[in-house]
Simulated scan of single mutants.
Amino acid sequence: MTVTNLASIPSPPQGVWHLGPITLRAYALCILVGIVVAVWWTVRRYVARGGDGNTVIDCAIAAVPAGIIGGRVYHVITDHDKYFGEGKEWTDALNITNGGLGIWGAVVFGGLAVWGVLRYKKLPLAPFADAVAPPILFAQAIGRLGNWFNQELYGGASDAPWALEIYRRVDENGNISNMDGVSDGFVLQTVQPTFLYELLWNLLIVALLVWADRRFRLGGGRVFMLYVAGYTFGRFFIELLRTDEATTVFGDVRINSVTSGVVFICAVVLFIATRKRTREDPSEVNAGRPVGEPEEDRDAAAETNAGADAEKSLADGAQDGTESAPQ
């Protein structure tokens, strides 16, 4: 006998739309929207810290592709059984539109790209990291909606009112295809929506970061440390609820749980060790300069001021020489 829940969360009937030669994938669109929102918000936060908004754009141009590559590399390494071995197509490892991006790899590769850009511009990393922390996590929350469309990242069976319905999807040939198919209305199971748990947790930590940043004027990279600690704390427990295939270590412990635990401890230690850092630190970007003033304008202004000072010194020297000359 089939048991039907009185209340549950429906999944989207499909996650892919074919518009002639164009294929629209909800997962990719969610990532794109998250990136756009994150860049826009980071510009506002970085400028408020005295930075140049153009620097954010430059960093985004480098960090976005690096982050996508890093996220995919981490996913493929930790879930290599899905792509390598007998009966597997290794080329699927390159198909990111079907889902599969590890946030750990994305942050590491993206962070390295940002570090490279800021080093080239001779700007400190910490203020940028603090500016980008809440936007990154907000983008992660938006990205989790892509998992909803893909019917992935869920937990065990559940009959709770917030349980998620997983539909059977079939393609135009009648073959079962979760990614490219369309729901035929048959509910395969109702499960724990762990993607939703993480989405809500991310939004909660975003609010905490914004509040703590304003309340305590965090600086020196401490907002980013708090972001890492907050995210990994929730991810550790959410990971324990997931039932999708994943690489395990130490017996049957999911590798993402281990990663979350280790990174959480490191972030907390750093956050405590840097407790005296505030936004008034001299390391803050462009300290003492007008907010949002372009770097080129500052350089030109510096040259103009230097020239004016030199002229004034010469004039003062000439005047002193005239006054002290024998009459």
Rank of each mutant, 00 (worst) to 15 (best):
residue 190 T to C: 09
residue 215 R to S: 12
residue 233 F to C: 12
residue 231 Y to C: 03
residue 193 P to G: 12
residue 232 T to E: 14
residue 217 R to D: 14
residue 230 G to M: 05
residue 211 W to C: 00
residue 219 G to A: 03
residue 219 G to N: 07
residue 195 F to G: 09
residue 209 L to S: 05
residue 206 V to E: 05
residue 212 A to D: 07
residue 194 T to H: 06
residue 214 R to D: 13
residue 206 V to G: 05
residue 205 I to E: 04
residue 234 G to A: 10
residue 233 F to H: 02
residue 205 I to K: 02
residue 192 Q to N: 12
residue 228 V to L: 14
residue 209 L to F: 04
residue 185 G to H: 08
residue 241 L to V: 05
residue 200 L to E: 08
residue 209 L to V: 10
residue 228 V to F: 10
residue 194 T to S: 15
residue 204 L to F: 15
residue 189 Q to H: 09
residue 199 L to M: 15
residue 244 D to M: 02
residue 217 R to C: 07
residue 220 G to N: 03
residue 231 Y to F: 13
residue 215 R to Y: 12
residue 186 F to C: 00
residue 237 F to E: 06
residue 222 R to I: 09
residue 218 L to W: 08
residue 220 G to C: 05
residue 239 E to K: 12
residue 192 Q to R: 12
residue 208 L to E: 06
residue 180 D to F: 13
residue 219 G to H: 03
residue 190 T to G: 05
residue 225 M to F: 04
residue 203 L to F: 08
residue 224 F to P: 00
residue 184 D to Y: 02
residue 221 G to N: 03
residue 234 G to V: 12
residue 184 D to F: 02
residue 202 N to C: 14
residue 214 R to N: 13
residue 181 G to N: 03
residue 188 L to P: 00
residue 227 Y to A: 14
residue 222 R to H: 05
residue 182 V to G: 00
residue 236 F to V: 12
residue 214 R to F: 06
residue 185 G to N: 07
residue 187 V to D: 01
residue 188 L to Q: 09
residue 239 E to S: 13
residue 233 F to N: 05
residue 199 L to A: 13
residue 235 R to I: 11
residue 183 S to G: 05
residue 212 A to K: 11
residue 202 N to D: 15
residue 187 V to C: 04
residue 183 S to P: 00
residue 208 L to K: 04
residue 208 L to V: 15
residue 220 G to Y: 01
residue 225 M to H: 00
residue 185 G to C: 13
residue 201 W to M: 10
residue 204 L to C: 11
residue 200 L to K: 04
residue 225 M to A: 14
residue 216 F to C: 06
residue 183 S to V: 01
residue 224 F to Q: 01
residue 241 L to W: 02
residue 196 L to P: 07
residue 240 L to V: 07
residue 196 L to I: 07
residue 232 T to Y: 01
